[in-house]
């Protein structure tokens, strides 16, 4: 950790993440905290995210609370959560009615499809980047690939976690011994 961000910086950071995060928040939060600001290392972010995903609840929010608590305890968690939701809440309240009217217009649909395709690449590129930077052992890599395959086959999430979390724990246990 190169420096400790202030609460204001965390709030503004999550406000920005909330308003730009096409395709899901996690890839954008990683870009902000790890790449742009250097407030978290690749490993630290991956750990907070992993915890956010196994706990019940929206994982982007769980991760925001984890990051906020890490830096500033309860108030940190609150500013991160508020920052994350403020922008999208206002935006969605404004566009929800427009979308019902105009969302199916061919031009609007075409633009949204182009953005969705690019955002999908953003998310996949982030996953590849995390793997290349973290250089996991072969065992951990296999567990990651299994998680990817099961989720891509649309196996229900609780089952994926029930199957793979124990394997992840065993692998991490053995690697800490070395």
């Amino acid at each position: 950790m190169s420096e400790r961000p202030s609460r204001t910086a965390l709030f503004l950071g999550y406000l920005q993440i909330g308003l730009t995060s096409f395709g899901g928040v996690n890839a954008w939060a990683r870009r902000f905290f790890v790449e742009k600001k250097g407030w978290l290392t690749e490993q630290e972010y991956a750990e907070v995210l992993g915890i956010g995903q196994v706990l019940p609840g929206p994982n982007a929010l769980n991760t925001a609370i984890g990051i906020g608590t890490y830096f500033h305890g309860a108030t940190g968690a609150i500013v991160c959560a508020l920052g994350l939701f403020t922008g999208p809440m206002v935006l969605l309240a404004a566009v929800a009615s427009l979308y019902d009217t105009y969302g199916q217009l061919p031009l609007v649909r075409a633009i949204l499809t182009g953005i969705a395709a690019a955002a999908a690449g953003m998310v996949m590129g982030t996953a590849v980047k995390m793997v290349t930077k973290l250089r996991p052992s072969r065992t951990l890599l296999c567990i990651g690939l299994a998680a990817f395959t099961l989720a891509a086959l649309k196996v229900r999430m609780p089952y994926v976690l029930l199957m793979l979390a124990p394997l992840g724990l065993i692998a991490a246990w053995r690697e800490l011994d070395r």
Partner: peptide
């Protein structure tokens, strides 16, 4: 913490 990391990345990719 470490054990959940590969799952986190696999789920992002998916």
């Amino acid at each position: 913490e470490r054990g959940m990391v590969p799952i986190a990345i696999g789920l992002i990719a998916a």
